[in-house]
Amino acid sequence: MTSTPISVVLCARNEASRIEQSIRAIKACEPAELIVVDGGSTDETVAIAEGLGVRVIRSGGKGLAPDRQLGADHATHDLIAFIDADHRPAPDALDSLKRDMDEFGLDVVQAAVGIEDNGFWNRAEHDAMAVFQHTPGPRALMIGVAPTLYRKEVLQAVRFDEVNKEQSDDADLFKRIVDTGKYTFGVGRTIVPQFHHPDRKDYLNKFRWYGRRDAEFIRTHPDRAHSMWFHLLVRYPLWRPIKAVFQGKPRAAVYFWVCGGTRLSVVISKTIQSVFLRTSRPTPEPGDA
């Protein structure tokens, strides 16, 4: 068992092809508790998890952010790790994350993600992660929600958005963590392998999904809209690609351009739609109830 009791929460939906490998990897870490939150799977995800002796909570398909909060609420230990179905943590990963948390004095610590080499886009994403994510230490704005270790009090004080299914589970949560001024977060030295689909179409669908969440973040948090626009207009097309080229990782530059451009196009489209809907609504006549 891990040196400090840790609850692991794995949120999944239609992950029958990957969840067994993830559960076996997590079990090798010997957590004090493993909970799978199923988000309405129509495949064998639940049967596989239960067949491996894992406690499964069915959320009814409320969305990823509510599912994460549901798992955190059911966790019984003071430390909670979110591990996803595409992660394959090494047996010492949880203990390593706890050491990272202690070393940097953090309340939330994310593992660096190592994308497994399986085609151009996997290699490009792996290089991209190395460019902007693999520097250990505290962060000022946000980190990823998983694979990440949390002090439970953080997820009790600052909860995931449990209503808005379109809300980003990471940008929204860490925006509100920053607003408290109480908790620190960052990236540790631990690296957790991650398995993504190698097909370009799958990546484009993922980037569009990010874009929809970006647009919802701007709508929900207008006070931070400038930060998101800077992210999409400067960091992705300029700063990160330049940094990638100087580090000898041209594939990462391609990843940033395609990911950022796709997300930006979705955000612009959603913004135009929102403006059009507001301006096209009929003005109520005097006396209308």
Rank of each mutant, 00 (worst) to 15 (best):
T2S: 15
T4S: 10
P5S: 13
S7V: 10
V9H: 05
L10M: 13
C11L: 14
R13K: 14
N14C: 09
R18L: 12
E20S: 12
K27T: 04
E30N: 13
A32L: 13
A32F: 09
L34K: 08
V37W: 02
G40K: 04
G40F: 04
T42M: 06
T42C: 07
D43M: 10
E44N: 08
A49W: 02
E50L: 02
L52S: 00
V54R: 07
V54N: 07
I57S: 05
D67R: 05
G71D: 05
A75G: 06
D78C: 02
I80D: 01
I83W: 02
H87N: 13
A93C: 11
L94S: 07
S96F: 05
L97V: 07
E103T: 12
F104M: 00
D107I: 02
V109T: 01
Q110A: 10
I115S: 09
R123V: 11
A124K: 09
E125F: 14
H126M: 10
A128R: 12
H134G: 01
P136C: 08
P138N: 05
R139V: 05
L141T: 11
I143R: 03
I143G: 06
V145L: 08
V145Y: 04
V154T: 00
A157Q: 02
V158F: 01
V158S: 01
V158G: 01
R159A: 01
F160R: 00
K165C: 03
K165M: 04
E166S: 10
D170G: 01
A171W: 03
I177N: 01
G181H: 12
K182W: 04
K182S: 09
G188C: 08
G188L: 04
T190L: 02
I191Q: 05
F195P: 00
H197R: 14
D199E: 15
D199N: 08
K206N: 13
K206V: 07
Y210M: 11
R212Y: 06
A215H: 04
E216A: 09
F217P: 00
R219T: 08
R224V: 13
M228G: 06
H231M: 08
L232D: 04
L233D: 08
Y236D: 13
P237L: 11
P237D: 06
L238V: 15
P241N: 10
P241Y: 11
P241T: 14
K243T: 15
K243D: 15
F246N: 13
Q247D: 13
K249Q: 14
A253P: 14
V258F: 14
T262E: 12
R263H: 07
L264G: 09
V266F: 09
S269W: 08
T271S: 15
Q273F: 12
Q273H: 09
S274Y: 11
V275M: 11
R278E: 10
T279K: 15
P282S: 12
T283I: 15
E285P: 00
P286C: 01
D288G: 02
